[in-house]
Deep mutational scan, measured.
Amino acid sequence: NKFNKELQWATWEILNLPNLNEEQVKAFIDSLRDDPSQSANLLAEAKKLNDAQA
Results as ranks from 00 to 15, higher is better:
Asn1Gln: 05
Asn1Lys: 04
Lys2Asn: 15
Lys2Gln: 15
Phe3Gln: 14
Phe3Pro: 15
Asn4Met: 08
Asn4Ala: 07
Lys5Ser: 10
Leu7His: 04
Leu7Tyr: 06
Gln8Trp: 10
Gln8Met: 08
Gln8Phe: 07
Gln8Ile: 09
Trp9Leu: 08
Trp9Phe: 10
Trp9Lys: 07
Trp9Val: 07
Ala10Thr: 08
Ala10Gln: 03
Ala10Tyr: 12
Thr11Tyr: 06
Thr11Met: 13
Thr11Ala: 06
Trp12Glu: 05
Trp12Thr: 05
Trp12Lys: 03
Trp12Asn: 04
Glu13Arg: 14
Glu13Trp: 15
Glu13Ile: 13
Ile14Pro: 01
Ile14Val: 06
Leu15Met: 12
Leu15Val: 06
Leu15Glu: 10
Asn16Gly: 09
Leu17Gln: 03
Leu17Ser: 02
Leu17Thr: 01
Pro18Lys: 12
Pro18Asn: 09
Asn19Ala: 07
Asn19Gln: 04
Leu20Thr: 00
Asn21Gln: 08
Glu22Val: 12
Glu22Lys: 11
Glu23Val: 11
Gln24Arg: 02
Gln24Tyr: 02
Gln24Ile: 03
Val25Leu: 06
Val25Asn: 02
Lys26Gly: 06
Lys26Met: 09
Lys26Phe: 10
Lys26Asp: 07
Ala27Trp: 15
Phe28Arg: 01
Ile29Met: 08
Ile29Lys: 03
Asp30Ser: 15
Asp30Met: 15
Asp30His: 14
Ser31Lys: 14
Ser31Asn: 10
Ser31Val: 07
Ser31Ala: 11
Leu32Pro: 00
Leu32Ser: 01
Leu32Gly: 01
Leu32Arg: 00
Asp34Trp: 12
Asp35Met: 08
Asp35Glu: 07
Pro36Met: 09
Pro36Tyr: 04
Ser37Gly: 07
Ser37Leu: 07
Gln38Ala: 05
Ser39Ile: 15
Ser39Gly: 05
Ser39Ala: 09
Ala40Leu: 14
Ala40Trp: 14
Ala40His: 07
Ala40Met: 14
Asn41Arg: 12
Asn41Leu: 12
Asn41His: 10
Leu42Gly: 01
Leu42Ile: 11
Leu42Asn: 02
Leu43Gln: 03
Ala44Thr: 10
Ala44Leu: 13
Glu45Lys: 14
Glu45Leu: 15
Ala46Arg: 00
Ala46Ser: 02
Lys47Gly: 04
Lys47Ile: 08
Lys48Pro: 00
Leu49Glu: 04
Leu49Lys: 05
Asn50Val: 01
Asn50Lys: 01
Asn50Gly: 02
Asn50Asp: 08
Asp51Ala: 12
Asp51Val: 08
Ala52Phe: 10
Ala52Thr: 11
Ala52Arg: 12
Ala52Asp: 10
Ala52Pro: 02
Gln53Tyr: 09
Ala54Leu: 09
Ala54Pro: 07
Ala54Gly: 08
